[in-house]
Computed example of a mutant assay.
Amino acid sequence: MQPTQAAPEAQETIINVNAQNVQQVVDASMRMPVVMNFHSTQVPECQGVSDTLTAEARARAGQFLLANVNCDSEMELAQYFRIQALPTVLVLSQGQPVDGFAGPQEPAMIRQVLEKHLPAGWQLKLQEAQPLLAKGDFDTALPLLREALAEEQNGDTLLALTECLLGLKRADEAETLLGQVGLADQDGRYQGLVSQLELLKEAADTPEIRTLQQQISEQPDNPQLVVELSVQLHQAGRNEEALEALMGLLKRQLDAADGDARKTFLDIVKALGPADPTAAAYRRQFYSLLY
């Protein structure tokens, strides 16, 4: 096994460790788990462990750093870490050994040791979504954050998805999620999102919407006005109100407003996406009308 040698700060998956870069390896454990693999070409039992760790490091790229220590050439490092048998594997976190094993082990056991210290699926999705949120790429972040929340509902996933929804001007669902955040997680970020929601709701009450609402009150039997209002509501992020208004028309007549009501309803549902809970609820209502 001959992994490519490089400095750990370059975010490699596998490196060789020596006296010159060992401190960088320890420092890297402050950011992610580091798995130190002490091996020797003189001990055949090392090869199976090394092969399994290499395969896991490549399959889980970015989740941990595999740091290989060749004890044939780095005896001082082996002595420093008090290695008494080969192969030996140490898991470092926050600069300290927190787990490990000595001697050859089955791949399933090795994976079990790793999984205790690797980030969960929801954490990986959250990490992937964070830079997308930072640069305002809310559409790309949305499915990642929905998956993260489905796997684990906690303050981190709730607040991240809320931030994304507010970026997309989906005030209704954002407000629902904020209502699910526990007291322990109602920190400064939470308060900032509450303020952002209030501003979004205020901005969503546009003059065009108020004018159309007034016209509908004067012409309650004009379905085209309802369609126009629904379009304005959708553009303002008030999707539940838009779909509810259109569903009221469709329940009375599927081809209301010469079919515009149905088309607009389906356009809004499609725009929200299959994972949006509001869209899913109204999609079911629509199918019940058809069948």
Rank of each mutant, 00 (worst) to 15 (best):
K263E: 11
K125I: 06
F265K: 08
D205L: 11
T211P: 00
L66T: 01
N70D: 15
R210W: 06
L90Y: 02
L254E: 08
H234E: 13
E152R: 14
A174C: 02
L250A: 05
E173K: 14
A6I: 01
N70G: 03
P274G: 09
G237S: 04
A261C: 13
E115A: 12
P143G: 05
A174T: 04
L114R: 02
S230K: 03
E218R: 09
D260G: 03
R31L: 11
P223T: 02
D156H: 04
G237F: 02
K270M: 01
A271E: 12
R58D: 09
D205M: 11
A19V: 09
G273Y: 13
A271P: 02
V194R: 08
L183D: 15
S230R: 05
E202W: 06
A59F: 00
E198T: 11
K270L: 06
F138W: 15
P87F: 00
L144N: 08
T206Y: 09
D156P: 01
L165N: 04
T162C: 04
P97W: 07
G100T: 03
E76Y: 07
L66R: 10
L243Q: 05
R111F: 02
P274D: 15
F138D: 10
Y287P: 00
E241Q: 15
G273P: 03
R284H: 12
V34I: 06
L114D: 05
A256R: 09
D205P: 00
Q215N: 14
A85L: 12
Q84K: 14
I14K: 05
G273W: 06
Q235H: 05
P143L: 08
Q219F: 11
E228D: 15
Q63I: 11
G100W: 08
V231S: 04
A102R: 15
L225D: 04
C164P: 04
C46G: 11
A257F: 11
L158M: 05
K135G: 08
Q153Y: 01
T157M: 00
L158G: 01
R60D: 08
D51F: 03
E45H: 13
D99W: 13
V43Y: 09
R58W: 01
I14F: 05
L66E: 01
D72S: 08
Q180H: 10
L149V: 09
D72M: 06
L178G: 07
W122D: 10
P119V: 14
A150V: 08
K169P: 04
A174Y: 02
A85C: 07
E228Q: 14
V35N: 03
A10E: 12
D267Q: 15
R284A: 15
A242I: 01
E163P: 03
A61P: 06
M32D: 06
V25S: 10
E198D: 13
A171C: 10
L178W: 08
E218L: 13
A10T: 12
F38D: 00
L126Q: 10
T54S: 09
F265A: 05
A171P: 02
L266N: 13
R262H: 10
Q253S: 12
T41Q: 14
G95D: 05
A275E: 15
A148F: 05
P274M: 13
T176R: 15
Q191K: 12
F286Y: 15
V26D: 03
Q285V: 11
K270A: 12
L53P: 04
V43Q: 15
N239I: 00
E151I: 10
T278I: 15
F138N: 14
L118H: 04
R60Y: 01
Q105K: 15
A261H: 07
G182F: 01
I14E: 03
V181K: 03
I110R: 10
W122C: 08
G179T: 06
